[in-house]
Design a protein around this nucleic acid. Structure first.
Lengths: 318, 318
DNA sequence: CCCGATTGATACCGTCGAGGTATGGGTGAC
DNA sequence: GTCACCCATACCTCGACGGTATCAATCGGG
């Protein structure tokens, strides 16, 4: 009945993600036998089987799936506690704003300017990260506030929409589709992605080959924009940047075209739930105020804004 | 730079709450020297001073206060992970509904009946707890869903209001105020509370002597309703039950009177954020449906309901 | 002003468990 | 059938966690 320990949760998450004791042990920088023993001990403490293992296959039991979900958030909470304690000790506080380079829809300078007008403003550190890194950074305390495109994994995070803009598809100028004024997703089905999988139609779904390729494409530190453009010119990948991102990257050999049936991208400002920081609230206010002077989007944006506003009214910065 | 461990956080929380190493060690069931060393090691790992200690006084630094806040939620998250894993392994799942006895406003039988009509219904366990225990139970996984009066500590918890009802004051029948049709909080100022502190006017505030006395009164396992009524008859304490609670306890020597300027009590149904359980969603639906057939309260209830509804729309059970 | 009580820090020690290495054993691939 | 792969077991070492004894500093009382 003793409490779990962080180390046990880290070990379990590694094994549950790898579904492979040896690889997990390697990732953890330890040998496999102690890891096996630790998992066994964890199962004994919980009185529950977490993994079904044969000598050739490791799979999660329902209890293991539940623990994997919760262990991730628990580990983030512990990491956030440590980070916040270190941060609170700094003599002069700073606001850490996480965002993905170029995906601020051009609002960043105005937002920062508006922020500095606020009485609660403190110096801002910018944390540039890849797609999908902002929300985890909020959860584990690396960042205090973030600008990022929705949808994202908003567990433990509150957000407020700023603006919604359509996404385009980037095509090689020589691509037959580039001659058309507009394309639809079906036109792009079958396109090869970097890993050799055909492009799925529809918005990338979590777990699909398409989203995996999109992530490998847009997130990997190994692939920068130049590489993306090269692959686009070769017709090897599909890429759906918001118009503001496309506008920042005019290139002679790349043509951007509207996609008729592609969901638009919504930029949001997000912060950790239970943030009690006046500086975060000031940044949220500044971002919302700046976005308000931009032409408003369609009904979808209005609905999301209302939802987030009432959520925020229930006791959080704003 | 190594990760924190759960044990370290438990130790720190104990010391931070007691502000006394010896008492904290006693509470933790260990000797004081290892505890001092563990805290020192924690401070070394974080590179931050958490406690200012003289030989006669221990106090929290700002970093310590930040860590205390976060450590509590992190420990709850770890506990919840363990509980959810154990729970998920049970062959036939059960729904654990936490509530405070008598504070269901008489809706519980109808809610349970409506719940059992739902297709996702599973057997329900009732967890009766004192005031303020329901929300922590949701956070650390002891309960899946709760009925409780707002306001409460809603960190990590979502909720939906069910109904709002006025609160009364319970007076000894012989009390001069009992002769009046209605009293106001100022009339009650100065009344002695169990710990000898005078009753504060206004709604109890967290940290005030009044709220401490209210808690000692209503929550302590040592004091049951009979004791409460005895103290009321002696004029020693003030108690503000919602009308539905008062109606359940008619007593010849106790008189209930409206309080003109006392905020009403709102019963809500609450569940952990990120709950993915269909059974929880079904219980929430059942509770809302039952409450909807009860005469609606004033604008306050309408506003809260709208807020919670849009919050729920952003991706949670419902 | 000194003495004792209180309380956190230090010193030292024993034990338990975390992690390493070597090896066994079972399963799927060819 | 043989080989490679991979999880489990056995055994060992060492570090750290916790306990006891003691010191040091501070506050209160006579």
């Amino acid at each position: 009945m003793g409490d779990l320990e962080v180390r046990q949760l880290r070990y379990f998450v590694a094994v549950a993600e790898e579904l492979h004791f040896t690889r997990a042990a390697d990732r953890l920088g330890m040998a496999q036998p102690p890891l096996s023993r630790a998992i066994r001990e964890l199962e004994r403490q919980l009185g529950v089987r977490l993994l079904d293992r044969t000598t050739r296959q490791v799979s999660l039991t329902p209890a293991g799936e539940a623990l994997l979900r919760d262990a991730r958030v628990a580990l983030d909470a512990v990491t956030a506690a440590a980070r916040h304690a270190r941060h609170a000790a700094e003599p002069e506080p700073r606001l850490r704003l996480a965002l993905k380079a170029d995906y601020d829809a051009g609002l960043l300078p105005r937002i920062l300017a508006a922020y500095e007008e606020q009485p609660a403003a403190i110096p801002v550190d910018l944390l540039l990260g890849g797609r999908g890194e902002q929300a985890p950074a909020l959860r584990d305390g690396r960042a205090d506030v973030a600008l990022l495109p929705a949808p994202f994994d908003d567990r433990g995070v509150e957000f407020e929409p700023l603006l919604t803009e359509p996404r385009l598809v980037a095509l090689a100028a020589t691509d037959p589709l580039a001659a058309r004024d507009q394309v639809c997703l079906a036109d792009l089905a079958g396109r090869l992605l970097p890993d050799g999988a055909p492009a799925d139609h529809g918005d990338p779904q979590p777990g699909s080959a398409a989203v995996a390729a999109q992530r490998a494409l847009a997130d990997s530190p190994r692939m920068d924009l130049a590489q993306i453009f090269n692959l686009i010119e070769l017709g090897r990948i599909v890429w759906f940047p918001p118009v503001s991102v496309a506008r920042r990257h005019p290139r002679p050999d790349i043509t951007y075209r509207p996609v008729s049936d592609l969901a638009p991208s919504t930029l949001v400002v997000a912060w950790p739930r239970d943030s009690r920081s006046a500086a975060v609230a000031a940044m949220v206010r500044a971002a919302v105020a700046v976005a308000a002077v931009v032409p408003a989007g369609p009904d979808e944006q209005a609905a999301m804004t209302a939802a987030a506003r009432s959520r925020r009214a229930a006791g959080s910065p704003g």
